[in-house]
Design a protein around this nucleic acid. Sequence first.
DNA 1: CTGTTAGCGCATTCAC
DNA 2: GTGAATGCGCTAACAG
Lengths: 376, 376
Amino acid sequence: MTENPRTSAEPDPPGDRMPKKSELPGTASASVMASASVAKKGARQRRVTITDVGTAAGVSTSTVSRVLNGTARVDPELARRVQDAVAELGYRPNAAAQGLARGEAGAIGVLVPDLSNPYFPDVLKSVSAVARSNGRRVMVMESDEDATSEHELAEDLMRCCDGVLLCSPRMNRAELVDLSLRGHPVVLVNRIVPGLSLPSVSVDFYGGMTLVCGHLTQLGHRRVAYLSGPEASWANAERIRAFDAAAAFGVDVTVIPCGHTARHGYAAADAVRDSGVTAVVAYNDLVALGAVTALEESGLRVPEDMSVIGCDDISLDDLPSSRRLTTASLARDELGRQAAQTLEALMAANGDTEPRVIPMELRVRHTSAPPAVPAH
Amino acid sequence: MTENPRTSAEPDPPGDRMPKKSELPGTASASVMASASVAKKGARQRRVTITDVGTAAGVSTSTVSRVLNGTARVDPELARRVQDAVAELGYRPNAAAQGLARGEAGAIGVLVPDLSNPYFPDVLKSVSAVARSNGRRVMVMESDEDATSEHELAEDLMRCCDGVLLCSPRMNRAELVDLSLRGHPVVLVNRIVPGLSLPSVSVDFYGGMTLVCGHLTQLGHRRVAYLSGPEASWANAERIRAFDAAAAFGVDVTVIPCGHTARHGYAAADAVRDSGVTAVVAYNDLVALGAVTALEESGLRVPEDMSVIGCDDISLDDLPSSRRLTTASLARDELGRQAAQTLEALMAANGDTEPRVIPMELRVRHTSAPPAVPAH
DNA sequence: CTGTTAGCGCATTCAC
DNA sequence: GTGAATGCGCTAACAG
């Protein structure tokens, strides 16, 4: 034990200090803590309302509302009394009541298929940033890659949020149409459905995979495997579409059903070996790294014996790996930001946003190389 | 292109089918789609309310409410008419109004410091499972390891949720006390604050690290480094406390300030080398894997030259890595389940739950071995 | 500038 | 078993 004995355990010694004025309301009057202490947890006492505040401050509820929301000018003296009362009573506005009266919830919802993939938390961060800058909360829900529950979750979200971001939705077209008919702000992220009137922001996976194929071709690869992701994934379909097109350049792509996790990639390694390819492209970086692991465990060298290419470029920041994965990269923060902005515009009825597309770039790193036995 | 040409692109060919009856309400009447189509997105038309349904069905709003909530017996004929009207109109209850009237939001909130660590999504899954089984939504917020914003986010959550789960909160004791005084259901996950009246569910990190130290000792290690996590982390403090105690067994632990991500671990590798230890314990698996990567890149062999031990055991399921990390493991789903149940009990006023502790187990895998030059 | 009056959409007493 | 009336807590006209 050399350093920093244990100071980090309790940032503040017990009872050391009370919250600073700037942190908490309720420091204006000496009786604050006393009245707060009354709020024992046993007695589910009636929450303090705006009326209580008004009474305590000797003003009407409208005035309280005004100073709290800055809706209109209020006599400084009254404002002070209100704020004191708020602090004194520990008043917090009731979100449901505000929502009802204002006609909006003050929150946006985000539905994602899988939080375990660092990809989504990253997107979420920038979504949250713009949402908060607009004074809105963010409500996250995860469908766990389950297309069945997704529609219901989306409905839930729509019921309690002013707008919803559907990330990589797996639900079928009909369900999407159903949601789009609600007249509720919804934007699609990474899913483009022809004929659907929903704004969308998506990544150019087709372009990204085309770059990957080009890279592989120039390296001399001819036979390539693709570890396919979730069946209902639009992103997956786009990647496959790119491989289709690549056939014109002499690239023969074998699609191997796989999945979206490292575990899936790990399990698919045998099939990759057996397929006789010299390179494999994975649905995403997680799958790719899983595959690399299994491939190496089975005695193959990457990239000498087998090139492995990922997608999403999550490895750099989020994943620990001695393998610097060659991958298709995108600005996840930009994706999140544009999605949130599009939704914001929609909610402001400044809609009619045309489909936005985030480009991909090829990142050549250490898992791609010419094939051991060049084609021709 | 060998298989599965592109069928997965659109699960349903455009216009192929409408939602099945079991999936969606609104199929009862032939005019459903027609009326739904009226809901153009441009005209922010008034949402259909329970009154509209009542009118359409020729009953009072109370009756509508009754059939919708199953609150009381209703004439089957009327019930049918109500349900038809609901379907026809595409009625969805307004969450805010329900919340206001019922006096509860129908949701619980979960605050986590970092969604990018697979640890939290895992916990979230089981929290969601029990919440949903209780008919409650789950609202997730991320503080991004920022102790400053955490208190505010928690307040936000409390305002719109019936109960809140504070996971690994970084805020200081005073802020925690402030929240605990609100008389609002809150349970602490992975943070124990003496004298605080909040129920808690936490992992026995102390015990876990003690096992790790024992393992290392028996292997023959005497000089060990600890890559320390966030300063405000209780879990981090607990780990350090265990190292303190381990000193009695002749283990000399050097604490190296580090962080909570793989990148942090990667960056700290030099310091580990320089410290002259034969083994290093990381704040978590992410950090450990980052360290392994850097260590190996610098020419050291793991575990021959340096043992590396993690914490949380996320590598197995979530992380791709050719390194099977020796680590301290816990049942994350159990942690989430117990936390959610404790909160549920609190909300039902069946509170007074005593602190729950989730045990840790040692998982000896491939990154720990006897030191190259055994002590003595 | 401020107080009074109406709802927001729904659940829930009450009478019938 | 059903409808009418009341109120949840708050905001937004509306008068003053």
